[in-house]
């Protein structure tokens, strides 16, 4: 099967502080994969995800999505590429003062007429689709409450619904469960798994806990200081590999 996403020699240097965040990263993702990126804080996981849809501008290297060069795209073309890549975040990134439905509808912004959306007018089909997606993540009764009245787990589910609105082919999740408790973490991860298995959406997610990565990932990519130190199946990570990725002093922490 053809690779859906190809990353070649991706390098990112933050000019402020001259920090090398990503150092010559190359990998590819096949459609339908559930790729988990692990690594310590500051190892470059977030930067990697954001370089794929160019929320952060990479310094060097190429990213191809369905054969299209993302790094060369500009303006409208980049926006059309971005709408095929859903993204959810550690801090949910919802507009707290807006209603849940408005937050979910924001996922359609890449599709709708910009001038109509400027006055908060959305097509009827989009509103119905929004309510359907809220139902799918189990919070349809909260559609008209303010986003900050929801619990952390519910907010993340709004984030998932927003990503679903994009009808994405690729879903990127930047530590989606780091701000949540273990039980909620699993419910959120299950939604990602569901999207992956039922809708065939490719998932790339960064995670802190190896136990979660083993449970959900079909493949694991480990970063350390901006370099790939491991790439392979979850079962291949043994004690030695673990120490290599997380350092000598690291201990296993389990999330069940």
């Amino acid at each position: 099967m053809a690779d859906q996403l190809v990353v070649e020699h991706l390098t990112k240097i933050y000019e402020r502080g001259d920090i090398l965040a990503l150092d010559d990263i190359s990998f590819s993702v096949v459609k339908g994969e559930f790729l988990v990126v692990i690594g310590l804080s500051g190892s470059g996981k977030s930067t990697l995800l954001r370089c794929i849809n160019r929320l952060i501008e990479p310094t060097q290297g190429k990213v191809y999505f369905d054969g299209v060069d993302v790094t060369a795209a500009s303006g409208g073309e980049l926006r059309r590429l971005r709408r095929k890549m859903g993204m959810i975040y550690q801090q949910f990134n919802l507009v707290k003062r807006s209603s849940v439905l408005t937050n979910v509808l924001a996922g359609r912004l890449g599709y709708v007429n910009p001038w109509m959306s400027a006055v908060h007018r959305f097509p009827r089909e989009d509103i119905e689709m929004g309510l359907k997606n809220l139902e799918r993540v189990g919070i349809s009764d909260q559609a008209y409450t303010r986003a900050d009245n929801l619990s952390g787990g519910q907010q993340q589910r709004v984030g998932i619904a927003r990503a679903l609105m994009q009808e994405p082919e690729l879903l990127m999740a930047d530590e989606p469960v780091s701000a949540l408790d273990p039980a909620t973490s699993h419910s959120v991860m299950k939604y990602l798994e569901q999207m992956n298995q039922e809708d065939g959406v490719t998932v790339i997610t960064s995670l802190h806990f190896l136990s979660l990565a083993r449970r959900y990932g079909t493949r694991i990519l480990a970063l350390k200081d901006g370099k790939i130190v491991f790439e392979g199946l979850p079962s291949e990570i043994d004690e030695a590999r673990f120490k290599e990725i997380y350092g000598e002093e690291a201990e296993h922490v389990e999330v069940r």
Partner: peptide, 20 residues
Amino acid sequence: GPPEAIRATGGNRLQVVIFG
């Protein structure tokens, strides 16, 4: 965060300001 999220959905500058 919210402006970033709007940018990631494919919104243009105006939409980023209005929604984010």
